[in-house]
């Protein structure tokens, strides 16, 4: 299992589009991915779970990845979280 603390780069936090992109990536990775903010942990493949964490810009979250190739998947997901996805 890989675990990492990550600071959120999206200016509107992990809500609309960024939440969708992140959840899609987590779901399609094939690994078991959880995201924790404070004392609440949710399945990262659940857009409702992720949205309900109420993650804002600059918040720190903890990501855990379990499965094959966990290190690479962690790298990709981290990239998504630190990048500002709100401006297109």
């Amino acid at each position: 299992m890989v675990e990492r603390n990550i600071r959120i780069g999206s200016s509107h936090g992990l809500h609309a589009r960024p939440a969708k992109l992140f959840t899609q990536a987590a779901a399609s990775s094939g690994a078991t991915v959880n995201i924790r903010k404070g004392d609440k942990t949710v399945n990262a493949a659940s857009i409702l779970g992720v949205i309900s964490l109420g993650v804002d810009h600059g918040d720190e979250v903890t990501l855990t990845v379990e499965g094959d190739d966990a290190e690479r998947i962690m790298g990709e997901l981290e990239e998504l979280l630190v990048t500002d996805q709100d401006e297109a």
């Binding site: 609309a16 589009r17 939440a19 899609q24 949710v42 399945n43 493949a45 659940s46 857009i47 409702l48």
Partner: peptide, 16 residues
């Protein structure tokens, strides 16, 4: 499309 895709994901959400 972003709103609708997000809604599609909500429709099959694993937590749900």
């Amino acid at each position: 499309a972003d709103v609708l895709e997000a809604q599609a994901m909500m429709a099959e959400d694993p937590s749900l």
